[in-house]
Simulated assay, not measured.
Amino acid sequence: MEAALVGLAGTTVGAVTGFAGAWLAQRGQIRIQQEQRAHAEQVRWLDDKKGLYRDLLITLYAWHNSLASILKDEDDGKLLDNRSAAYKWVVEASLIAGDEVRSAVSDVHRALLRVQPVVFEGTSTTDEWPLQGVEDGLSTLEDALRAELAMPGRVGSRPPLGRR
């Protein structure tokens, strides 16, 4: 009778251990698959982001350059076109960019909008170059874009399991 109880206890412990091991393995496999899918989605957007960010920077710099040409009394006549194109790319970038990039884009956009009246009216209260804030913002934006493109989807998150 004692041998039967020991056998039953051993079988029960073995079954529970087997079940727990299978459950842990399945849970780990599901987690790996979820992280692989999330990583694949982030990498999928990388090529789209590269082109979008390039176009965004080009149009923001074109807007800046149009304002600079007005300040130097060499109006290139492209301000409206450059500003309209920049609005388009700002909206596009805000749809797929990370928080840091979205914030930097917003800062540059606001700086460009703030400096326009100064450029048109010549109301600068200092002898400082009115576009300095825009130029600083563009530099910050470039850094944020490089960081996001260098580490897609990993800003503030862990790398996928197989890559630690």
Rank of each mutant, 00 (worst) to 15 (best):
Q36P: 02
L131F: 04
L8I: 15
L138V: 01
P160R: 14
Q36H: 12
V118F: 06
V134N: 02
T125R: 14
L57I: 06
G51S: 12
Y87G: 05
A150H: 01
S139P: 00
V115T: 03
D55F: 12
L71I: 09
W63V: 01
I58C: 03
F120A: 11
L67N: 02
A4G: 00
P159H: 11
G28R: 15
G137I: 07
E121L: 15
R154Y: 04
V91M: 12
V134H: 00
G156S: 03
H39M: 09
A111C: 02
I70H: 04
S69M: 04
Q29G: 07
V105T: 09
Q132H: 10
L112T: 08
Y53H: 08
V155I: 14
G77Y: 09
R114P: 01
R114E: 10
A85Q: 06
R154G: 06
A150C: 06
W89F: 15
A86D: 00
G133N: 07
G51L: 13
T125G: 08
D127W: 02
V119E: 02
E41A: 15
T59R: 07
V101A: 03
R44Q: 10
E121P: 07
I30L: 12
A93L: 02
G21I: 08
L57E: 06
L138K: 04
G21N: 11
W89G: 05
R158M: 08
L149V: 05
D107C: 08
D73V: 02
S69W: 02
L79S: 00
E100R: 15
G133Y: 02
L112W: 05
L131Y: 01
A62T: 10
E148Q: 08
G98C: 07
E148Y: 01
M1T: 11
A93D: 01
D76A: 06
A38C: 07
A144V: 00
E92L: 15
R27K: 11
V119G: 04
V16I: 15
V91L: 14
V6R: 08
T140S: 11
A3Y: 06
D99S: 12
G98P: 05
A15L: 14
Y87C: 08
D73K: 13
T126G: 07
G21H: 06
V101S: 01
L149E: 10
E135P: 04
L95Q: 04
D75R: 11
A150Q: 13
R114V: 04
S84H: 09
N82P: 01
A40K: 14
L161F: 13
L161D: 08
G14F: 09
G133A: 12
W23Q: 07
Q34L: 11
R27N: 12
R164M: 14
G133E: 05
E100K: 03
L8D: 10
A144N: 02
V155G: 12
K49P: 06
S84G: 12
G137Q: 05
Y53W: 06
R54V: 08
V115D: 02
A38D: 10
G133D: 12
L8W: 08
R102C: 13
L141M: 13
R37Q: 14
A93W: 00
S103L: 13
I96E: 01
L95C: 06
G98Y: 03
Q29H: 15
